[in-house]
Design a protein around this nucleic acid. Structure first.
Lengths: 207, 207
DNA sequence: TAGATTGTTAATCGATTAACAATC
DNA sequence: TAGATTGTTAATCGATTAACAATC
């Protein structure tokens, strides 16, 4: 299994998504420049990425689509699928539960957590909401390795620490707070407010 | 007004947010390494960024907090505030309307749009939902320059084009679809599914 | 062959950091 | 002064791209 850096992984995800398009999936082969156009990167970048993951094309025929998809799956996915938890069943948490429900064959959100008694015990988008105090037990019981953090910023670090202690090794953090680094946990930060402020800044500059 | 690249703008947003913390806002001055710790960057980076925006500190006393905040505001914000629209009042759209409501002094979501008759005319988190066919008229009428895209991927490009034609110059795109480039529009892509898949991949690799 | 594509290296580009003189 | 911090440049690092030999 090759060691691949984050930027490359992101592109692999985009390539795989592009290949899932019906018209492409029907093709036997695809050229680097066609995949590049779909993924909005350069053809050289595609060739370099595919070379890096050890996938060869053939001159004048490009890359075999089915083989590529299988390779991407093998690199990106875990064999039996992965269980995820969502912590913080507010507006954002609920909408993500709906959004993610059934969207990925590999990742399943199997538990949600909150500290609000009104939410505990409810089922949202097919996912049961547990008391946050049960976090460690449920994470271990359900073999959860991934967590989605949709709690208020003030609680993000505490919850992230609890998740890490319970054995979670990947966190998608939607709270606008940078999490302290722990070597055994990979954190992906998605900061919507920052992105909006950035868009606003450049919107102002335009024209 | 200095021309600043995207990465720097992102850090300015983070610096400003860090300075909004009560204990920091109370201080008169702040050292580069303290601001660096809050923003999770290096002290050199902070000094370089502040130098780039033409803000000087004084040796052994650091940077004046109030002056910094004013400078950040002047660079990041538009003088009279900016109006934004949200297109696509699904789960994600509604949760973002709640989340953003009153969160920024500079950016106000003044209109939402959808094509579902059940949603048109309703008010969500203080924001009225209009028929998508009124998009161009309302955007012009309300002086909207920023749009948040929470429509299904299949409709993202069409809506983005309509927005650009109506005069929007900044788009925050939450649909998992890269938008075709137009020189007069700045697009910020936030791809939650990609981030989750990336977190899942590295979660699998850990330990 | 002629034409087109892949594999691969060197060159380029851009951002970050190390290091230190200048300053208080 | 001694100590600490800022301003600034050179060095480093990493990612992207240009270019082309190898191949079909």
């Amino acid at each position: 299994m090759p060691r691949i850096v984050g930027k490359t992984v992101e592109r692999l995800i985009v390539y795989r998504r592009a290949l899932a398009g019906h018209d492409v999936a029907a093709q036997e082969n695809i050229f680097s420049h066609d995949l590049a156009a779909l993924a909005h990167v350069s053809a050289t970048q595609v060739r370099r990425d595919l070379m890096e993951i050890g996938f060869s094309g053939s001159t004048n025929h490009g890359y075999r689509v089915q083989g590529l998809v299988r390779k991407f799956d093998r690199i990106l996915d875990a064999p039996g699928g992965q269980n995820a938890a969502l912590v913080g069943v507010g507006n954002m948490g609920r909408s993500l539960l709906s959004y993610l429900s059934g969207r990925s064959a590999n990742i399943t959100v199997v538990a949600a957590f909150d500290n609000d008694p009104a939410k505990i015990g409810r089922v949202i988008a097919g996912c049961r909401c547990y008391d946050i105090t049960e976090l460690a037990d449920r994470v271990k019981e359900l073999g959860i390795r991934i967590a989605i953090l949709t709690v208020p910023g003030s609680q993000a670090q505490t919850v992230a620490d609890a998740l890490a202690d319970a054995g979670v090794t990947g966190i998608l953090n939607l709270a606008p707070v940078p999490l302290g680094r722990r070597p055994e946990v990979h954190v992906e930060q998605v900061d919507i407010m920052r992105a909006l402020e950035k868009a606003a800044h450049f919107a102002k500059q335009q024209k």
